[in-house]
């Protein structure tokens, strides 16, 4: 049974597309400010929040805590965002459901959004350009090992299973990397410095692999 297809939206006026995007953004901003929908300080605050408060450093603190506190690790894997909120980090309001997937000596996880650019903003901030690119989104689902090796120097042996997570719903994914060996004496802050953004997306790997 064919369902009724809704009318597609009108083709946008190409003229607006010909104008410099900065001027277009400022024009729309002006109208919304005049309509009382937006304010100048709200725009400034959004920009400064993404520039200084939310970013991979929040995810790194979450990972470091999970490495040093087994109970916290359990809660993080079970409840995601509420475990993140336990730490005094700036949690971005947009992301409500976070799932953390854990690497192991024989498992490596990697995250993508093939349909758009869904990304765990709350813990990692806004995505890098490559994460949003068709080159990454098209290839990581069928050739994850080759992509990780060629683009990120991450060479995974056959003994490690590669599991890809395509985030197409409002559930967001973050990888919990393994704690690197030889880090026993480090403090939580020192550990957090070892955690890279890319290791939480899953294009890099921390810690060892099964022989």
């Amino acid at each position: 049974m064919a369902e009724e297809t809704p009318e597609p939206p009108e083709t946008p006026n190409p003229d607006l597309r010909d104008v410099d995007p900065e001027a277009r953004a400022r024009a729309l901003q002006s109208v919304l400010v005049e309509e009382g929908i937006l304010s100048t300080d709200a725009v400034d605050e959004v920009i400064s929040t993404y520039e200084s408060d939310v970013g991979p450093m929040n995810g790194a603190r979450v990972v470091a805590r999970a490495w040093t506190d087994p109970d916290y690790r359990e809660r993080l894997l079970e409840e995601g965002i509420s475990a993140v909120a336990e730490l005094d980090v700036e949690v971005n309001d947009e992301v409500m459901e976070l799932r953390v997937v854990e690497n192991a000596p024989d498992v490596h996880n990697v995250v993508v959004c093939t349909l758009c650019s869904c990304y765990p903003w709350a813990v990692l901030g806004l995505p890098p350009t490559w994460y949003k690119s068709p080159a990454y989104r098209s290839r990581v689902v069928d050739e994850p090992r080759a992509l990780l090796r060629e683009e990120f120097d991450t060479d995974l042996p056959d003994s490690v299973d590669v599991e890809v997570w395509d985030s197409n719903s409002e559930i967001r994914y973050m990888v919990l990397p393994q704690r690197p060996e030889g880090t026993d004496g480090l403090s939580e802050d020192e550990l957090a410095e070892l955690v890279t953004r890319n290791s939480m997306i899953g294009v890099e790997r921390l810690g060892g692999v099964e022989a």
Binding site: V43, I47, Y50, E51, L126, P128, T129, A135
Partner: peptide, 22 residues
């Protein structure tokens, strides 16, 4: 893949991109 930008310093290439986010 395109280069790894923007970096941790700013998620936007230009300030107007931040305006679009807002």
């Amino acid at each position: 893949l395109p280069p790894d930008q923007p970096d941790d310093a700013s998620p936007f290439h230009h300030e107007w991109e931040g305006v679009v986010q807002a």
